[in-house]
Nucleic acid binder design. Structure first.
Length: 596
RNA sequence: GGAGCAGUAGCUCAAUUGGUUAGAGCACCACACUGUCACUGUGGAGGUUGCGGGUUCGAGUCCCGUCUGUUCCGCCA
């Protein structure tokens, strides 16, 4: 595993700082690394020497090695010396090499170091991420960051072997491509040779991998770097890595089977200390997920399902509920375990949160030993209360939140509350990994301007039995889609693709595209599709997010060596930067000031 | 694009209603110390309170502007 040079005559080291044990006592060794800690006792100097592999205590006698007194944090040194068992009672069980120490006979200072802007292993508060990113090369010296990138490597290597063994071919696709039809903004790359024209960086190799299926490669996989010029989040970066794959002559079940095998396998290989909630990944349709969890990526580590409450609260004389129902709303309920004990300010906070999530309001009832109270308590008589408690399975001490809205708004609002409550009630166990398939997403979705858009991408295949709906009730049409969700995070998603020209054209038309636009945007792929397309399906998995969850990190920036900040800026290099006029000129770019 | 929050020593933070010379811990420097392991002890240095303007007898604190960072929404699979 360890790649250190261990030859006894090697110039820099015979061992790493992690491997010496009691068995090595009396041996002569060479070690190189960074001064992690220095403890100068006058007559003896202790140095914890650090390399990629670990720490070893080195003992230096300043009478023999006067330079030992000059050593400071992060200096790079090399020592030669004798391994010795630590004196009786001096072993450090917290250290892997804590049974031994190296008595230095020679000391070479390869490099001194400025005092770092922050301590490599800080024991106080967290250092601002801004500063960490500015000095990323120092930040990456920290053990947690070294471990994050090691874990990332392990996941990628394991996956490569896995797909290789399954007969997948890794094929590289270009970074300079033509604009793709997916929704997000693209990074533009001006062409020097073709003034006024641009490449874009790929949002994903979607079209390329489908064309590889047309070419007959059967099974394709790639660790693909993807680019999106959108605003950042904790789980979003302008460039990120997808495990991209595509297969020919397969059904949805075939693809899901491969991915399930991969996901469970990589989990056991990379994070054996974590617990899988289920050894088989449960499957839920989009409609079921939305209805029960108010999310297309439910966190099923805890239950707290959203329930139907329309019959329970209808016709109780609650005017605003009856009015909502008359307008086609439904009433959905969320039972909050122990919620009756919440102070009023917390309840008010949830009312506010509900309003932020497209609900006009939040009704609530709380049941405890003092009886029932809540915003609609005066409308609920004893028998109705009993019926509510029985139907929704409310225990004494619980509260129930109700939202009356159109179905999708109602459930997604309660879904947002559900996640917030889980944090408050401490229901989220990071050592538990709960995978979930969400399938049969809507084929189309309505944009804010009322226009129809593809909810996945326009190559997604409608369910066989829903093809008729394309002509009658487009929004009801569901598709052969499957998202893999882990602990409420979308790890990846894919679909069965459309391989028939007529159906593909119809979908484009339904999306409101004229023949001219279809040809201009998708002409190249439609042309390819006229030469014999195999049925095919595939998916893309977000490796950054997977590593983030496996490593218990709060953002994907913690598992990317050199990430951008929230404004897509590289704080270490300072990119992006203004370019000299000559470079702009050569790239055929002219910069105009904003006029508006 | 919108909203919130933050910016004080190298780092993490404090500074009461606007009131003395802006403090602490860690880090740093010097000296002492042969068994520490987040060594210890003594001493020391370190600040244009992001920047610009305003109110005031007086501003780290209040107001306006601006820059930077950050979180959420919009956007984005």
């Amino acid at each position: 595993m360890e790649i250190a040079q261990k030859h006894p005559t090697h110039r820099y080291r015979t061992h790493t700082c992690h491997e010496l044990r009691a068995d090595n006592a009396k041996g002569t060794v060479k070690l190189s690394g960074w001064v992690h800690h220095r403890r100068d006792h006058g007559g003896v100097v202790f140095v914890d020497l650090r390399d990629h592999f670990g720490l070893t205590q080195v003992v230096l006698d300043p009478k023999v090695l006067p330079e030992a007194e000059k050593l400071r944090s992060e200096w790079v040194i090399q020592i030669e010396g004798t391994v010795q068992l630590r004196p009786e009672g001096q072993a450090n069980p917290a250290m892997a090499t804590g049974d031994i120490e190296v008595i230095a006979s020679t000391l070479v200072i390869h490099n001194s170091s400025e005092t770092p802007p922050f301590e490599i292993e800080s024991h106080g508060g967290d250092v601002a991420e801004e500063l960490r990113l500015e000095y990323r090369y120092l930040d990456l010296r920290r053990e947690v960051m070294q471990n994050n990138l090691k874990l990332r490597h392990r996941i990628m290597q394991w996956s490569r072997s896995y797909f290789d063994a399954k007969g997948f071919l890794e094929i590289e696709t270009p970074m300079l491509v033509k604009g793709t039809p997916e929704g997000s903004r693209e990074y533009l790359v001006p062409s020097r040779l073709h003034p006024g024209e641009m490449y874009v960086l790929p949002q994903s190799p979607q079209q390329m991998k489908q064309l590889l299926m047309v070419s007959g490669f059967d099974k394709y996989v790639q660790f693909a770097r993807c680019f999106r010029d959108e605003d950042q989040r904790g789980d979003r970066q302008p460039e990120f890595t997808q495990l991209d794959m595509e297969m020919s002559f397969v059904s949805q079940e075939d693809v899901m089977a491969v991915l399930e095998d991969w996901a469970l396998g990589v989990t056991k290989a990379a994070v054996p200390h974590k617990t899988l909630q289920q050894e088989i990944i449960p499957v839920m349709t989009w409609d079921e997920a939305m209805d029960a969890y108010g999310s297309d990526k439910p966190d099923i580590r805890f239950d707290m399902r959203i329930q139907e409450a329309t019959p329970l609260l209808s016709n109780l004389g609650i005017v605003f509920l009856d009015n909502a129902l008359a307008e086609g709303a439904v009433i959905k309920a969320l039972v909050v375990p122990g919620g009756a004990g919440f102070p009023r300010s917390v309840i008010d906070g949830y009312v506010e949160l509900a309003q932020k999530n497209k609900a006009k309001g939040l009704s609530w009832l709380a049941f405890d030993d003092n009886g029932m109270r809540g915003s609609i308590a005066k409308f609920v008589d004893e028998p109705t209360a009993e019926k509510i408690k029985e139907t929704l399975k409310v225990s004494q001490g619980d509260a129930v939140f109700f939202v009356a809205e159109q179905w999708e708004n109602a459930v997604s609002c309660l879904g947002a509350l559900r996640l917030d409550l889980a944090k408050r009630l401490n229901l989220l166990d990071n050592n538990l990994l709960a995978y979930l398939w969400v399938t049969e997403f809507p084929l189309f979705e309505k944009g804010d301007d009322g226009s129809l858009g593809a909810s996945h991408h326009p190559f997604t295949r409608p369910l066989e039995e829903h093809i008729d709906l394309l002509e009658t009730d487009k929004l009801a049409a569901r598709s052969y889609t499957y998202d893999l969700v882990l602990n409420g995070v979308e790890i990846g998603g894919g679909s069965v693709r459309i391989h028939e020209q007529t159906l593909q054209k119809r979908v484009f038309e339904l999306l409101g595209m004229k023949e001219e636009e279809i040809q201009q945007r998708f002409g190249h792929i439609l042309k390819a599709f006229s030469y014999g397309v195999p049925p095919h399906a595939g998916c893309a998995m977000g490796i950054d997010r997977l590593v983030m969850l496996f490593a218990d990190q709060p953002t994907i920036r913690e598992v990317i060596a050199f990430p951008k900040n929230q404004k897509a800026r590289d704080l270490m290099f300072g990119a992006p930067t203004p370019m000299p006029l000559s470079a702009l000129h050569e790239a055929n770019i002219e910069i105009y000031e904003h006029l508006d």
